[in-house]
Design a protein around this nucleic acid. Structure first.
Lengths: 230, 230
DNA sequence: AGGCACACGTGAAGC
DNA sequence: TGCTTCACGTGTGCC
């Protein structure tokens, strides 16, 4: 493993010394390698300096990379004493994991665009009761939640999970619906269409009574949608 | 940069050859380095084989690490032609970014534990109006949202964002509050305490009228909390 | 020409 | 002991 500053600076330097000594001995025995006239004057110290700066630069490069690897070790728990390769494997796993989880979460959580929209997609399909993930995004209004509730209750589906996020007068409602007594998965497509149509109707009812069609209504507080007494 | 398979396989081998030739020349001139009796018999080919397998193993190690780096390059867009160090810098940035976004999203989204709890933390503190992120987690009840709404409206804070997630009769309400006309950041601590106390009172009012103290009330639908007409 | 980045082989430690 | 991992210096190609 060799932690800290090893005296390994000797060995590589040892190979270098070996090569240099070899060069010197060849010269001493008169065995010029090739292109004698190329080295005009003072070529030896210049080459030595270049070699030294080269090794120092390479050293700095290694330190940079290792510092980054150390940062990665500190970032991912449980990799303190791991191999470089194992660390990178873990890093790759983390990137993939976080990427998928982030996208699959944020696509359902973040407040959507300014345009009204209705999304319905099959959540789990194979094996057991399937579930639908439906979301509707529109401008906030006091009776939206009640309308949405009544609409969903009219469907033969059970609301497993509901999530509401609102910001700036826009609201996104996302629900997860499941069918308790479903024996055939082939029905899920018709359920998907039904849910989509139902939410579309909510959207149309939302667009129906706009006092000022061109302007968006001003919402004083996100709790507009929560008010239990109109 | 040197992409692909360089013929650099020669040079390192060249240095090795130089060292080996040097070794051989020393032996030919009878200049034993040290410890002559140590090499008993057949030590030369054995050492050569060990050295060869060693270099091959090191080569495989490098290939493994580089393969992982290549995978990371494919994982993060825009790093195809980057340095190793720059690539790792980008990887670190990605990990941090994804980690924070995932945690800050999931900690507000996921359904909390079974225990009731109130959390209040300062969101943005330095520069401009600060904001508080407050959340309350408890069992669902019809008047919870109305209570929460009235409680928050009684505070001199504005509700910027509200998010509700409920599952299995448990509900988590998370709100982001800000103070519009705050000139001093030192007040945020008292606001934090006020919000915490207010939410605690909501929690206590929730625990007050339990028909069956030991058992949790059964909730038929998450839209219980949304019902606009009691 | 000089700096930079890379792959290579090798000595030293840890199991 | 052998196998693995690491840091090092070096050769080499590309700006």
């Amino acid at each position: 493993m060799m932690r800290g500053i090893p005296e390994g600076a000797v060995h590589g330097g040892l190979a270098a010394q070996a090569a240099l000594v070899f060069e010197r001995e060849r010269k001493e025995r008169g065995t010029r390698p090739e292109r004698v006239g190329k080295n005009r004057l003072g070529a030896e110290p210049r080459a030595a300096m270049a070699l030294k700066s080269h090794s120092e630069a390479e050293r700095r490069r290694r330190e940079r990379i290792n510092a980054h690897l150390s940062t990665l070790r500190s970032l991912i728990p449980g990799t303190c004493k791991m191999d470089k390769a194992a660390l990178l494997t873990e890093v790759i796993g983390r990137i993939k994991e976080l990427r998928t989880s982030t996208t699959e979460i944020s696509q359902g959580v973040n407040v959507p665009a300014d345009a009204d929209e209705v999304k319905v997609e099959v959540n789990g399909h194979g094996g057991g009761p399937f579930s639908l993930r439906a979301s509707i995004c529109c401008a906030d209004r006091p009776d939206l939640l009640a309308d949405l509730r009544q609409t969903l209750l009219s469907l033969p589906l059970r609301t497993v999970k509901a999530e509401i996020s609102t910001v700036g007068g826009r609201v996104k409602n996302e629900v997860v619906l499941t069918c308790d007594g479903c024996e055939d998965d082939s029905e899920c497509s018709v359920f998907t269409n039904n849910v989509h149509q139902a939410l579309k109707s909510v959207l149309e009812r939302a667009a129906a009574p706009p006092e000022f069609p061109g302007k968006r209504r001003r919402i004083s507080s996100p709790f507009h949608a929560m008010s239990s007494s109109p």
